[in-house]
């Protein structure tokens, strides 16, 4: 140690020391950033509150739709009429902006029930068409008044600036008239 400091080895040792100290400082700073950033992520309470929600479909009559919330997001649940289903099936999928068949967007055996997220895929407004009397747009589905996007009776984008169909949330039928979302 004592004679390592005088001649040329002194420089190497010094450089190594500086490098190690600098590296340790960088590691320390990096570690400090972890809690400062990860606190921005959803907290445990928010995550737990996003647990699956059960919904009884029995009160929703044919032609009606309701709006419920899961993880703070609105979800449309629509009990479609025969006409609406036929319209959705009749569309040539190849002509769609976001090609998806109606079968891909509903559960087999439960075709009248359509479950979609209720935020316009353009910039997140809630399209009209759920409550009775609201405009349903040109395709018997939903109409977003913010920037004029039209969704059809399968929740697919047909006209306007929105790029994608209303996404289908993860859900499953737990009984004939009961679904669990999430």
């Amino acid at each position: 140690m004592a004679h390592a400091t005088d001649t040329s080895t002194g420089t190497t040792r010094r450089d190594f020391l500086m490098l190690a100290t600098g590296a340790a400082g960088a590691v320390g700073l990096g570690a400090v950033v972890v809690p400062l950033i990860s606190q921005l992520a959803p907290d445990a309470q928010t995550v737990a509150a996003g647990a699956p929600v059960d919904l009884d479909l029995a009160p929703i009559a044919e032609g009606q739709a309701i709006k419920i919330f899961w993880r703070g997001k609105p979800i449309f649940v629509r009990h479609r009429t025969k006409k609406e289903i036929d319209e959705a099936l009749a569309v040539d999928v190849a002509t769609l902006r976001d090609p998806q068949t109606d079968q891909q967007r509903t559960k087999a055996g439960h075709e009248p029930i359509l479950v979609v997220f209720g935020n316009c895929t353009h910039l997140g407004c809630i399209p009209l068409g759920t409550a009775p009397g609201e405009p349903k747009g040109e395709y018997d589905g939903w109409f977003c008044p913010c920037h004029g996007s039209h969704y059809d009776s399968s929740g697919r984008i047909r006209k306007g600036p929105a790029p994608l169909n209303l996404p289908v949330p993860p859900y499953a039928f737990t009984a004939d008239t009961k679904i669990r979302i999430g």
Partner: peptide
């Protein structure tokens, strides 16, 4: 402050919320 609620009925619980639920909230 991002996680705290300045209200007489909620302040105490919001601090405990920070201590329990917020990621690294106890540390901060």
């Amino acid at each position: 402050v991002m996680h705290y609620t300045p209200h007489a009925t909620m302040a105490f619980n919001s601090v405990e919320h920070i201590m329990r639920d917020v990621n690294y909230g106890w540390l901060l």
